[in-house]
Every structure is written in structure tokens, then in C-alpha cells.
Design a protein around this nucleic acid. Structure first.
Lengths: 278, 278
DNA sequence: TCGGCCGATTAACCTATGTTGTGGCCGCCT
DNA sequence: AGGCGGCCACAACATAGGTTAATCGGCCGA
């Protein structure tokens, strides 16, 4: 998606990749980002990185592996709000909220970085463009949740499932986790069910239908999407909501004259022609 | 909720009220807020304030009246993502996104203020505490959408409906639009259906059940909640997700040493003891 | 090697919710 | 006054999706 940049000392992390799809980062910004990801921990599957009702602690950056953000009802019913993929941030609103209204649980072994909430303030002061990119990432999360709401409210089981698969494909592409149409989907059918508001049995039926129609193939955790276009059409997928286009020109203005660390070289690239309608 | 402040020249607007429930605003901040709401327009019902796919223009503040934020599928199915109430902001991500992935349509005559996106940048630079309060408001929106997702995915029709009514009650309380248990619900059953992912007929059935059980009364657009506690229990309502508590102490730190306009007098009040579990 | 457990799969059956259709009320236009 | 359109109400019927239960295969620990 984005070409490897000038800085060769730094390894492009998933977050780095994701933000770069939104705006071009300066070396200085990249270094700050790398520094944010300095403190790294590994966790096994089924670990809670955050628990509903718990006080927020650090902000975390998912570097590797999958997790789910989910909410539960007192009687045990559960809804997966979103999948947390490499490059996603956990507990971004740490600074604003006292305690979490959702849990985050790992599905695979993960590698997460964490940093103290104070750094968010620091970041907004010193690196407004980076801050904007993070805000974009957060706002996009909301857009994804809203689109999932549309799915649960108004799409049939088949449509929802197709939609989710295309969404994951797109999101994983940005962080280079898709190779010609297939990717790893480290998810039980129970979790899919909880994400799509269906029963486990019905998800099974639905996946079968998708397999029978030849749109997808499943081998263990590996899923192959044979015909993205058609799958997208089944799911009425319009990627507008993913906001996969570069920062608007407005952004330049809004943060202009802003700051110290505002470097001279190439700022926002407001070319927004790479949005393809599925 | 919040006592009328020192400044007597200024009329507390709904946004003002809402933000004040999060943190105490200084006079200077209040004045800036008032200035943001200077340009006012009135619109009749059924007006689109924003349209799916459209380029973002100004940011708007709802001052009076109701609207809905909704998304539509190509074939006409529609999902109401959220209700826009007085004090809510429309198009907050204007600066970050090129075009809108949802529409906003008025339900009643409304009064909206609007200001150019550049002012967001200005605000973040000069009034970090105000910016944090707005960010809180935005983050809360996401939390509300996530909770609605839980409703659509895992709550029954009756539960969803009860939950929504309690939510509206709470949100309207903050902006003084509830008087002992009743408020105006300027919403057709069709819109309720679209908000809850139900058919119009089934919403009708469900409201009947709630009425028959004596939990609510409906006279025209006026709804009376007779027993909030019980209604909340039916809907498994836990207000944690509304984050109706004051800013955490963290916030102080995160934005500390920040800025010019940072005034001396009383900053954030981190007393978080007013959360009642429903 | 032998359970035992977890997840996938499928069949049979059930129910919450959707659909269709009718009628009634009310406000508004002419 | 009469007709029309929007909204509410409710009955009768249809179905997408839920529930229960049984089977199977793979993995792991004893």
C-alpha cells in the first residue's frame, strides 16, 4: 500500500503502516511512534487485556495477533463489538474515561506495546499531525461499529457474514496480512456468532452456504476469498465507511501554523483518488 | 445537574450543560463555546443536515430539536445509528474524513449552530480542556453506538426497547429535557423500528406490552416512564457506558503544562462518585 | 493407548419476529 | 364537507434464525 520510507533504521510496525495509509509521516514522527511502541509485552490467547468495569490503565498498541473487543450482559449473552487487529489501539479513551465499558480479550498469542496515558497529551501538543492520524484511526473505529450496527439491524445473516469477511480482508490488507485472497482467521464459529448477533448453529449454516456457492474456502483457520467482488456484492459492501483515503486538505488548514515539531517537508497529501467502490 | 455558573451574561446552551457535566468550564472557555454557537440556523423537520456520501462541510451543534443519524442500504433498508439531541455535535470528524458515511435528518424543527472545521484546530491549540470535553462527548457517542450494537445483537425486542427508552431519559436529563419521568419523544414508530432493528409492526407490539405492564404511558408524543428502575431492569440497563462521571484525574496530567489559555482557577474535578448503577 | 474435551457439523423442531392486509383516527388541503 | 395521506393498531399467517441434541474428528494429557 505505502512504499517503504526514507528511514531505514526503523521497522515499519502495523500502526505505522496503518497511519501511513492516511498521511505521510515525517522521520521525526516515525521515531516518536517507534518510541511509543518501545515497551512490549507478549500475552497468550484468552487473556483479558482490559475488562468491562475495570479502571483504565495504560494505552496499548496491538503489534501482532488478534483480539476482540466485546461487551457482555449480566446473564452471559455477549456481543463482539469489533476485532482488534495489528495496528489497532486499545484503550485510546483512557484519558477521557474513568473505566472501561467493554472488555478486550486476546484470541491468539499477541504482542502489545503499552504507554502511559500522559503521552497522549504530550503527543497532541508536540505532534499534531500524528495526533490527527490517531484521531482518524479512532474515528474510523466508530464508523466500523456503526456499520456493524447497520449489519445487525438490517442485513440478513448471509449478508452480514459476507460483509464482515470483506471488511476483515480490507483491514488486514492495510497491514500486509493478506496474500492473494487468503488470510488467517483465528476465530471460532462461536466468536463469529457473537460478532454477528447470530447463533453458533446459524453461523455454521451460513458459512456452509458461502462455501457451497464457491465464494470462500475454509481450511482450518485459513480462509480464501475466491471472488471478493461478488462477496462484497452479497454483503452490500461499500467501503466508504472505512475511510481508506488520505487526509483531506482541511486537515492541513485545521492544524496549520500549529507547532514546533511541524517539519517543513511534505505535509498532508490530499490526493483522495484511491477509493474504489466495491 | 450543574449549578448556574459565575458568568451571568451567557445563556447556558445544551452543549454547555452537557460539557459541564464532565468538567467545570472557566469563563473564558464558556465564552469561546458561546462564540462557536454564534452562527445559528433553523431548519424544518425532515431536512437533511448531512447526507451519506456527501463531502463534509461545517461542523454543527444541535441547540434545539431532535434529529437522527442513520445509514441506508442501497435497497432502502435503513438503520438509525443514534439520536441527535440538543447539545450533540454533528460532523465532528469533518476535519479527519473527506465525506460522510451516514446521513443526519431532522425530526422536528431544529436550531443548529455551525462553524468552520478550522476552528477545531484552533480549539485544540488554545483550549485543551474544552477540546478534551468535546473529545469526551465524541468518545461517548461511540460508546452509545457500541451499546446499541449489544442491544441489536443480543437483547430481545422488549429489552432493546426498554433499554433505548432509559437511555433517552438519561441523555435528555442532562440537558434538562425531562420533568418528573416524562419527556417528548418526537418519533414515529417507524423510526423507533429503524433504531432498534425491528419491524414497525413488532415495535408496535412491544410498546403495547410495555404499556400494558404499566411501565410507560404514551399520549401522543409525550412518554411517561412510571418506573425507571424496573424499566432499566427489563432492558438490562447499566449506565456505565454513558460515562456520566466527571473527568478522571488522568486528564489533568495528560494536558498539564499545556497552554496559554490554561487558566489558574479550578481545573478538572476528579470526583467520580456520582455514578449510580441502575 | 485411551479417554476427554473442544470445536465443527447437521438434523429436527420451535419461536421471535417479519409480512401482508385491513381498518380507524386525525390533520390538512381544496 | 369530503377526500387524502400519514400514522397507529391489530389480526392472521410466514419464515429467518434459535434451540436442542446427536455425531464426528482432532488434540492433549495421563
Amino acid at each position: 500500500m505505502t512504499r517503504a520510507p526514507a528511514s531505514r533504521a526503523l521497522d515499519p510496525t502495523p500502526l505505522w503502516l496503518k497511519l501511513s495509509s492516511y498521511l505521510v509521516l515525517s522521520d521525526e514522527e516515525k521515531m516518536y511512534l517507534a518510541d511509543l511502541e518501545r515497551t512490549i509485552a507478549r500475552e497468550p490467547p484468552r487473556t483479558d487485556l482490559l475488562q468491562q468495569g475495570e479502571r483504565y490503565r495504560d494505552v496499548r498498541i496491538m503489534r501482532e495477533g488478534w483480539a476482540i473487543r466485546h461487551k457482555a450482559l449480566p446473564d452471559g449473552r455477549r456481543q463482539v463489538v469489533n476485532f482488534v487487529l495489528p495496528g489497532d489501539i486499545i484503550g485510546m479513551y483512557c484519558t477521557l474515561f474513568e473505566s472501561a465499558d467493554h472488555s478486550v480479550t486476546t484470541l491468539t498469542p499477541v504482542e502489545v506495546a503499552s504507554f502511559p496515558p500522559e503521552r497522549i497529551g504530550e503527543l497532541f501538543q508536540s505532534f499534531p499531525r500524528l495526533a490527527a492520524a490517531l484521531a482518524w484511526s479512532g474515528a474510523r473505529e466508530e464508523a466500523i461499529v456503526a456499520e456493524r450496527l447497520l449489519s445487525l439491524g438490517r442485513r440478513t445473516a448471509l449478508e452480514r457474514t459476507a460483509h464482515l469477511l470483506v471488511e476483515l480482508l480490507r483491514r488486514l490488507s492495510v497491514v500486509n496480512m493478506v496474500t492473494d485472497g487468503h488470510f488467517v482467521l483465528p476465530v471460532t464459529q462461536e466468536i463469529l456468532a457473537d460478532a454477528l448477533g447470530l447463533s453458533i448453529v446459524h453461523i455454521n449454516r451460513t458459512l456452509r452456504r458461502l462455501r457451497d456457492s464457491g465464494l470462500i474456502e475454509l481450511n482450518g483457520q485459513r480462509i480464501t476469498v475466491n471472488d471478493v467482488r461478488q462477496l462484497a456484492s452479497v454483503g452490500q459492501f461499500d467501503e466508504l465507511y472505512l475511510h481508506l483515503i488520505r487526509a483531506p486538505r482541511r486537515l492541513e488548514r485545521a492544524f496549520s501554523g500549529a507547532h514546533h515539531h511541524q517539519n517543513g517537508h511534505n505535509g498532508v497529501r490530499p490526493d483522495g483518488e484511491d477509493r474504489a467502490k466495491a
